[in-house]
Design a protein around this nucleic acid. Structure first.
Lengths: 162, 162
DNA sequence: TATTGTTATACTCTATAACTATA
DNA sequence: TATAGTTATAGAGTATAACAATA
C-alpha cells in the first residue's frame, strides 16, 4: 500500500466514522415501537424473499392456516381472528379461490355465510411450501436460541391482545 | 338468576366455546412472524390513537428524532438509517417542512444535498408530544416489567440487522 | 333490526425508474 | 461516471360506507 493509498484509506475510514456518527439513532433506541417496526419490516421482506415462488402474502397464508385449523369457519369470524376487516378479506379469498386453494361452500345453518374450507390443492400447497416457510422462520430466529425464540413469542403475545 | 336465565347463560357460554373453537389459530401459533405482525399492527393502532392530536405517523416521528440526534444529516443517509427509500422520504419531509418542524438547509460541503435540521418549532413539538408518546409506550409495555421490556427490545434487535 | 358477504372508493405506505443538478 | 434530491407512477395493504340477501 502506497502512502497515498493509506491516506485515502484513512480518509475513507474517517468518512465511515462520520457516517456512523450521522446515524446515531438517538431517542429511537428507547422506543419499543421502533424495534417492533424494524423487526416487522425485516420479517415482511424475508417472507417475500423466501416464499417468492409460492406467490403468497403473509396475510393470505394466515387465511389458509386458519381455514386449515377451522374447517367451515365463515369470513367474518376468520377476519376477526386475524384482525382483518371482512371487506378486505373478500379480495384475498377471491384470489385464493381462483387458485383453488380454498373453497366457499354453502353453510348448513346460515344461508348468508360461506363455510370456508381448504381444498386438497390447498393442503398440498401448505405441504409444498412448508420447507420454505421453515427456512424463513429459521432466518428470523438465526440469532436466537430455541428458548429465546419461544420467549420472544410469549413477550410479543403480551403486547397484542389474544 | 332464574332457571331460564341460567339456561340462556349456559347457551351463551356454549356459543362462546364454539366461537373459540372456530378461532383455533392452529399452526399460526408456532410462527414467530405471526406474533411479530400482530404486535406491530397493535402498535401502529395504539400509536395513532395516542398521537391523534399530533397528526404524525410513526415514520414521520422517526425522521424528526433522527434529525434531532443528527443535525445536518442528509436525506439519503437518514433514509438508509431508517430503512426508507429516499424517494419515499421526499414527501415525508415536505410535510414536516410545511409544518415548519424540520428545515432543509444548504449543505456547506455538497451543493447536491440538504442538511436537515430540527427547527425550534420541531423541538417544541417533540417536547409537547412527549407525554403522549410515553403513554403509548406504556400501553405497549402494560403487561411487561421494565426488565422484560428491555429484553424484548434486545431480542427484536437481533431479528432486524442494526 | 342485525348480520354476512359484497362492491365502490379512498387513503397510507412504499418502491422503481427516470430526470436535474451537482460531484 | 456516480450521487442527492426529485417526480411520476404503480403496487400492496387496509378501512369506511352502503347495498342485497338472509337471520
Amino acid at each position: 500500500m502506497t502512502e497515498k493509498a493509506v491516506a485515502r484509506s484513512r480518509g475513507a475510514e474517517e468518512a465511515e466514522e462520520r457516517a456512523d456518527a450521522e446515524r446515531n439513532r438517538g431517542r429511537l433506541l428507547g422506543l419499543l415501537g421502533y424495534f417492533l417496526r424494524r423487526a416487522d419490516v425485516y420479517t415482511f421482506q424475508s417472507f417475500n424473499a423466501h416464499m417468492a415462488e409460492d406467490r403468497i402474502s403473509p396475510g393470505q397464508l394466515g387465511v389458509l392456516l386458519m381455514a386449515e385449523a377451522n374447517p367451515g369457519i365463515n369470513q367474518t369470524r376468520l377476519g376477526k381472528a386475524l384482525g382483518i376487516d371482512r371487506s378486505t378479506l373478500v379480495a384475498m379469498i377471491d384470489l385464493l379461490e381462483s387458485r383453488a386453494l380454498v373453497a366457499r361452500t354453502p353453510s348448513a345453518t346460515d344461508r348468508r355465510s360461506h363455510a370456508l374450507k381448504l381444498t386438497r390443492q390447498g393442503e398440498a400447497f401448505l405441504k409444498a411450501m412448508q420447507p420454505r416457510l421453515a427456512r424463513h422462520e429459521a432466518e428470523l430466529a438465526r440469532n436466537l436460541s430455541a428458548a429465546e425464540r419461544r420467549l420472544l413469542m410469549d413477550l410479543l403475545a403480551r403486547i397484542a391482545p389474544s
